[in-house]
């Protein structure tokens, strides 16, 4: 995919942020063009880097459910971390990518191809790649403190 990309520097790692996508502050990307009338979303390379090698993705929601903004979605687990996930937008959940549930390691390998969910409609709020990068930069100190504090 020949896509324009900007980068956020996470120490030695550079998190790629494709310019054509929109972003949510819970570290999901939105693709508004993949499926007409829907928003496809997945975790950003920043999120994938924090989690590292994901081996379990456990959704507590099903396609067809109406979800509010920040509704709990389920859990994600890698060898070094786990997290609950929260809805990046409100709306009806249209589809879950079962291929990634079966093989969650794809999130780490190719976060912008391994989409997770599709919602009906478009997100109320989102950021472009530049805004998301600025958002990451703003929170980076605190994120590092959180990571270190827990270790």
């Amino acid at each position: 995919m020949a896509t324009e990309v900007i980068y956020f520097e996470m120490g030695l790692y550079r998190a790629a942020l494709p310019v054509r996508l929109r972003y949510a502050d819970v570290h999901f990307w939105f693709d508004l063009e993949a499926v007409p009338g829907r928003t496809r979303c997945g975790l950003t390379s920043y999120a994938a880097r924090l989690l590292d090698d994901v081996f379990r993705l456990d959704w507590a929601v099903q396609a067809g459910e109406d979800l509010g903004e920040a509704a709990p979605l389920g859990t994600i687990e890698s060898h070094k971390a786990c997290s609950e996930l929260y809805a990046p937008m409100a709306g009806k959940l249209a589809a879950i990518n079962e291929d990634v549930v079966a093989e969650p390691g794809r999130i780490q390998r190719d976060p912008y191809v391994a989409w997770l969910l599709e919602f009906e409609g478009a997100p109320g709020e989102s950021m472009d790649a530049e805004q998301y990068r600025a958002f990451l930069a703003e929170g980076w100190e605190e994120t590092q403190r959180l990571l270190k504090g827990q270790l």
Partner: peptide, 26 residues
């Protein structure tokens, strides 16, 4: 394990509880 829930948008406990309860009510 590292719990990254805060980074992924974990709401405050009370708010999260209300969301979970709403889900079960629905």
């Amino acid at each position: 394990k590292l719990d990254l829930s805060k980074i992924f948008g974990k709401p405050k406990a009370r708010h999260q509880a209300a969301l979970e309860r709403d889900r079960e009510l629905l």
